[in-house]
Design a protein around this nucleic acid. Structure first.
Ligand code: SF4
Ligand code: SF4
Lengths: 143, 143
DNA sequence: TATAAATAATACCTAAAGGTATCATATATG
DNA sequence: CATATATGATACCTTTAGGTATTATTTATA
């Protein structure tokens, strides 16, 4: 896997919240759309809230909404916020650090892969998903 | 992480075996070079043997060697043999399958990433590492 | 053929991620 | 101000990957 499951959940949750930025979405709404395990979803919503990407309103008629404009939240922001260890190491072989004086053949190739992924994540914002109507997309397809 | 740790170990082990294809390398030799946890290394060597990528000789003065020519073993072969779930799903969001009639914006972008990684893995053989003298490379750097 | 040195098989342990359950706290509204 | 309904905090359980320990089997050679 490239992203861990929890980060994938976060992508979907954030996309869903972007589908109507102004509305307050409660956990049941999100569950109905995404079918992420309910109690785990509850937990992850408070995690997302603590990251600052999402704002929560407590109490009756409470719920969640994006903390910033869709165009100001990138997928990269989400990966970072979720502490996904996607790029924990630079080394293709998983070495913490390489003591070699000159890089092996994989180093630059792998740097290319990293760069491509980072570039996609950094240039894709939730605004793009809104355009694509990810709301409907996500609703139809679970498991 | 992109590859799991065990697959990274396998890359290193196979590169090391490629450093001298004819010689029989026993677990202690491999351990001295790679410092993969010894007993886990032992276990993984029999796993690699069962995949058919490696041949083992049992008994005194036994050990391991590559089952095929270096140029005939790709990194992709290793990933497959280790059952790494790198590309378990096509979907950026981790969906098993997408019921949407037309793909979302991430689909083709993500397909591009997959294709790039697959292409590197499928076109890189152990022969390439031999040229690079990966043996020395791996020896110097652990943890 | 006994022994030493290697791999094979198997069972078990540990750490981290994913997921569940319970109770506490906040808040709109009658 | 009581209640219903929402999130927050916390503890615990489950699954999987990674790692360890023990015993069995193989085989070269003295
Ligand atoms: S040179 Fe090769 S072994 Fe060293 S850090 Fe880069 S990819 Fe890893
Ligand atoms: S179209 Fe989008 S949601 Fe559907 S499988 Fe492709 S990436 Fe996943």
């Amino acid at each position: 896997m490239i992203f861990n499951r929890t980060t994938e959940y976060a992508f979907r949750i954030m996309s869903f919240l972007a589908s109507d930025k102004e509305k307050l979405h409660n956990t049941s709404d999100i569950f109905d759309a995404l079918h992420i395990p309910f109690r785990y979803l509850r937990k992850q919503m408070t995690v997302l809230t603590k990251t600052g990407l999402v704002v929560s309103i407590q109490g009756k008629y409470g719920g969640y909404m994006l903390a910033k404009k869709e165009k100001d939240i990138t997928l990269w922001d989400i990966v970072i916020a979720m502490h996904d260890k996607l790029f924990e190491t630079n080394c293709f072989f998983g070495y913490e650090k390489c003591a070699l004086s000159q890089h092996c053949m994989m180093h630059s190739r792998w740097a290319g892969v990293k760069e491509m992924i980072e570039n996609i994540l950094k240039t894709t914002t939730l605004e793009d998903f809104k355009k694509e109507n990810m709301h409907d997309l996500i609703k139809m397809s679970d498991q």
